[in-house]
Write a protein that binds this DNA or RNA. Structure first.
Length: 577
RNA sequence: GUGCCCGUAGCUCAACGGAUAGAGCAACGGCCUUCUAAGCCGUCGGUUGCAGGUUCAAAUCCUGCCGGGCACGCCA
């Protein structure tokens, strides 16, 4: 496959620099996007960075680079500029190559030649104790876009959802469900005890249980008075009393039922949000298949655990964490962290080159101990990347909303999507860097949905389609004739199309979908500029066919870019009333 | 108190250590007899929280302050 013209120029620069005695690092970026168009199509700061190695002044090295670059077939002009940049202008033919690819095969457009390795991407992984809320939506949109971008950049991607389907929270969920069943049958009039799951969704689950004619829940209501004051303790006491009434088995069945229903709801909501997972990894199944003990044994064999006060500890402080962590409590129960040790051992055993765990920012304290035991086990902690997705603060009627699952007051992803639509929500979540805190004003999102950036991008695509439809010919008959595209706006659009591949590479390396969003915005802007300029249909040949080809290329590029963000590229926009 | 993230235009945010810090929203003024005006053009808006340091070059890296968020359990 022919390399991207920018890459070919970069490779040539590397050769020239090496010949001049400089030693550019393997991955060092040698070309970049100039700030202003009069600085050329691409620019190289290489002379500034490497003049020392070559033993001359930056501007002098830049002159050498420019002299040799003009000899390349891709280069129309190359100019050294103080303090040591080289500004490069490409030939029309070279510049049109990426656009031609967008026209001919938009699936390959922006796909780097170098293949990536394999990556396991874990994200969302919210506890199956309630519907997904808006914060999970941000993680879902971010994670799914990262997955799409990595795939496009040539990585083999597997996505995974880690399901905490056992443990205390699930017990509390089961007991809460039972209370809702009792409520439905008139044996309990609420309110839900503190610490239990009070959300409306459990009423719906309870109604479903009734509908299938379950016997569970028959018998007498438990006493829910005289509970401890603390919410956690109260919930545990409720679990205890329900367990006494029903027995372990029935409680476990209720838990399975509740988790099953809630998971089904989450999957449905994620599907509507265009997010799917290759694998749902069940903590419960992992534990039941006996993976916990060998994992802890392995840590012990590595000399990283010890016993103290009747508990089993991991010496995390020896591996970069601030303190040691309990693996098995003095009552014999394994902690959540112990499960995570087993889970990550399982992950690393699957032999991926790269592991990405997308965490909510409230879990940032967890990263050090995760890397700690990976190091303790002799694995490579650098293979694990943990992008943190910051909390989304919801604002409604000028007030910050508290998002809590147990309290029953929260804003679900479903509500948000109902209000603003999948496209707007998905784009909104990947518009910014994930580690920036963001406010989501629900009123504004609804009221201003027409001004949402998503419409700007989609409208650009629809405009292209509209022109092509009016023309009525076959897109496959079009060819990019760069010699007929001489208007500044046209050239500017070609340049923008050419930058997509390096945008994809950066976005994949930095796990940064917002770079794709920014690129799309620039592309749309330049498309609109072409549209507003010279007429397309009715222009004399060869301009008409060349412009149509450019428009078709832009349409393909917009569709490909939007697809990487999970946003639809409609052929037409319904006119607002 | 300790640790992590953040601080850029009135608001929401961009900017691989590079050249004159950019968009959108908001405000104001223009452009539909013509391929969709969900668009385009223009105006207004900045001591990049503060102070030092490193560098040919700092919003970006380092140190210290100030401000905001989050986390600091034999919870998950």
């Amino acid at each position: 496959m022919k390399l991207h013209p920018f890459v070919r120029i970069e490779n040539s620069l590397r050769e020239i620099l090496t010949g001049a005695g400089a030693k550019p690092a393997a991955g060092q970026v040698l070309v970049e996007r100039p700030r202003r168009p009069e600085m050329g199509d691409i620019a190289s700061p290489a002379a500034l960075r490497l003049a020392g190695q070559a033993g001359c002044k930056p501007l002098e090295l830049a002159r050498q680079l420019a002299d040799q670059l003009v000899g390349l077939p891709e280069v129309a002009a190359a100019e050294p500029v103080a303090p040591g940049f080289v500004n490069i202008e490409l030939t029309g033919a070279a510049l049109a190559e990426p656009a031609a690819l967008a026209l001919a095969d938009r699936q390959r457009f922006g796909r780097p030649a170098a293949a990536g390795g394999s990556v396991l991407l874990e994200y969302v992984s919210s506890n199956p104790t309630g519907p997904l809320h808006v914060g999970h939506g941000r993680a879902a949109a971010y994670g799914d876009s990262v997955a799409r971008i990595l795939k496009h950049a040539g990585w083999q991607v597997a996505t995974e959802y880690y399901l905490n389907d056992r443990g205390r929270q699930v017990d509390i969920l089961a007991a809460s469900l039972w209370l809702r069943i009792m409520e439905l049958r008139g044996h309990f009039a609420g309110p839900m005890p503190a610490g239990c799951y009070a959300g409306e969704y459990l009423r719906e689950v309870a109604a479903g249980v009734d509908a299938v004619g379950s016997e569970r829940g028959d018998g007498q209501m438990i006493d829910v008075t005289n509970l401890p004051a603390a919410a956690d303790a109260a919930a545990l006491e409720v679990v205890h009393r329900v367990r006494q009434r029903l027995g372990d088995r029935q409680l476990a069945e209720l838990a399975e039922l509740a988790v099953g229903r809630i998971c089904a709801g989450m999957k449905q909501e994620l599907a509507r949000f265009r997010v799917g997972f290759d694998n749902w990894f069940s903590e419960k199944e992992m534990i039941e298949s006996g993976k916990l003990t060998p994992a802890l044994d392995k840590l012990a064999a590595a000399g990283a655990t010890y016993r103290k006060d009747g508990a089993l500890w991991f010496a995390a402080s020896r591996h970069g964490d601030e303190k040691d962590r309990v693996l098995v409590k003095s009552d014999g129960a394994a902690t959540y962290f112990a499960s995570d040790v087993a889970y990550h051992l399982d992950k690393y055993g699957r032999g991926f080159d790269r592991y990405v765990n997308i965490f909510g920012a409230d879990h940032h304290g967890y990263v050090a101990r995760l890397r700690g035991f990976i190091a303790a086990l002799g694995e490579e902690p650098g293979k694990l990347e943990v992008p943190l997705v910051q909390i989304v603060a919801l604002v409604r009627a000028g007030q910050r909303l508290k998002i809590t699952t147990r309290g029953g007051v929260f804003s679900t992803l479903a509500e948000l999507v109902d209000a603003v639509g999948v496209d707007a929500a998905r784009l909104f979540f990947v518009l910014n860097r994930p580690d920036a805190q963001m406010e989501f004003d629900l009123d504004l999102a609804v009221r201003e949905s027409a001004a949402n950036p998503v419409y700007y991008l989609q409208y650009a695509h629809a405009r292209c389609c509209s022109v092509l439809a009016r023309w009525g010919g076959e897109r496959s008959s079009l060819q990019l004739d760069a010699s007929a595209l001489i208007q500044p706006a046209e050239r500017s659009l070609l340049v923008e199309l050419a930058w997509f591949e390096s945008t994809v590479r950066s976005a994949a390396a930095e796990l940064a979908p917002h770079l794709v969003a920014s690129w799309l915005y620039e592309l749309a802007r330049k498309l609109h500029a072409v549209y507003e300029g010279e007429p397309i249909i009715g222009a004399p040949e060869p301009q008409q066919r060349a412009r149509l080809a450019l428009i078709a290329a832009a349409a393909g590029a917009l569709a490909t870019g939007l697809d990487l963000l999970g946003v639809a590229a409609p052929n037409k926009m319904e006119r607002r009333t």
